[in-house]
Design a binder for these strands. Structure first.
Lengths: 264, 264
DNA sequence: CGTTTCGTTGAAGAGTGTCAAGGCCAGTGG
DNA sequence: CCACTGGCCTTGACACTCTTCAACGAAACG
């Protein structure tokens, strides 16, 4: 079981019960019995080496994956070969949600560093959802959350300038690292400038230039892949288009209630 | 029951069994008993007049809605008041999926013409899903399909030019009208140029100009809100970036399998 | 330690946005 | 029925952001 012959993906037994990511990928409030049931479901892990694919567009959909460790991108490709990165994933995220639609994945999922995932076989997941209703509900939530996230990305791609996009992107990464117990102000970008650009609808040169500008303005220090945020407030101002203290635009009817908090 | 006092939303009894949109919004292959069960679930309809909201960001999530008749947009708003249209909906579509994430809608849903929807109360939906497993699965599919669709929009916003975006948009509308039994080559745009622009990440002037250019190139006839497509092939060529017979770019490693068919 | 991939920076140009003026159309009220 | 009104659409001129092309430097990899 430990030595799967697959050239570079090995499988391991899994133990949700003492996994500290449980709260991220599984529903809370299960009793012991239910967690046991869950461990049958999850069964095994899988490793993906940097640069390799967990799955590719067109592959048969058989499982969702909960990321234990690592960093990945998902990307779709147009018929003429243009690639669009649609998201970056880190530990605790569940990936593969696009496969349910037609039982075939519609995107590529590529590891940006050596990665380890838990396999959630879809057929077993469906069975288990019958017995543990909270599980089905939980996955509906995950799906819906992804829709809300993508709405935010559409807002970003559709109506924000390069600086705003980058600022939002950096802040979002920061927030996600913080949620996982890492520093919110200092981290390493696992993706290239080109991948950031693809995600944000910019060219790699623009990404590089804007990061340099941020550095110059003392908002952050960007040294190759290493980023240290110096001025959160400043970045936030850029995201809301209020950078450079422009002569106070009167914003007409600012919506009260829910705004898109997690832009990216 | 027929005369709900709500100033402009009336409710009606519903009958899925003889609704010709059933295949779009509900799972196929249910038996009679299950369909009866379903009709309890769906219970009532609701009308929304042009310009009014079915729900708004921040409203408590209580139901999904299946569109019987009409046309709507959904839109999110950034904290500084920029609006981004995230999709257009027509008969047979199910809306409200973003509400599951945190039991609060995260977008506005506005009718672009007088509209009638069936109400799918969420709590009843959850119960029914226990009894009719196909129902739960079906809604997971709807959610996943929306994620795939949004991936396509991100590709469009992130890596396509104005002409490509417009061409993709028009072709997608055409296809959806055709699926519903209307003409695929002649239809009326229910949204303004500004709304198209918001959706496609362009300004209304750009939308107008590009449509004029299409008219001039005999790809279509755009007369205010009325559109007649003259050259599907030509539009398709534009979407794939092969317009104007550019000196055959050698496309390196074109992905074989699944591509994003429904770009928009 | 050479080779390759990735990142930075400059100069020039293309593609959209911005601003402004005018036309078209539906709805309203005289 | 017609003039008026306001919203929507079109078109032009110009400004500006971002891309493109190119050269070089820095880091990663075998």
């Amino acid at each position: 079981m430990l030595n799967n012959p697959n050239l570079n993906m090995s499988t391991l037994r899994v133990a949700c019960s003492n996994c500290n990511l449980r709260e991220l990928c599984l529903p809370v409030g299960l009793n012991l019995k239910e967690i046991e049931r869950l461990e049958e479901l999850v069964s095994t892990r899988k490793r993906v080496r940097r640069g390799e694919a967990l799955y590719r567009a067109g592959d048969k959909f058989e499982a969702l994956y909960a990321i234990r460790l690592g960093f990945l991108k998902s990307a779709v490709m147009s018929s003429d070969g243009r690639e669009q990165v649609t998201s970056f994933h880190m530990s605790g995220d569940v990936v593969g949600l696009d496969g349910l639609a037609s039982m075939v994945y519609s995107s590529d999922l590529i590891a940006l560093e050596d990665t380890e995932v838990c396999i959630l076989h879809y057929d077993r997941l469906e069975e288990a959802s019958q017995q543990i209703p909270a599980l089905g509900t939980h996955f509906q939530r995950l799906l819906s959350r992804e829709i809300v996230r993508q709405n935010g990305v559409m807002l970003l791609l559709g109506s924000m300038h390069a600086e705003e996009r980058l600022a939002a992107f950096i802040l979002n990464l920061s927030q996600r690292f913080e949620q996982r117990g890492y520093s919110r102000s200092e981290f390493v970008l696992r993706m290239t400038r080109a991948e950031i650009g693809s995600y944000l609808g910019l060219k790699l040169e623009t990404v590089s230039r804007v990061l340099s500008r941020f550095s110059h303005d003392n908002l952050l220090i960007a040294n190759q892949k290493h980023v240290q945020i110096m001025d959160f407030e400043g970045l936030r101002n850029i995201v809301s288009g209020q950078a450079f203290a422009q002569p106070h635009k009167t914003i007409p009817l600012k919506k009260a209630a829910t705004s898109i908090k997690d832009l990216v």
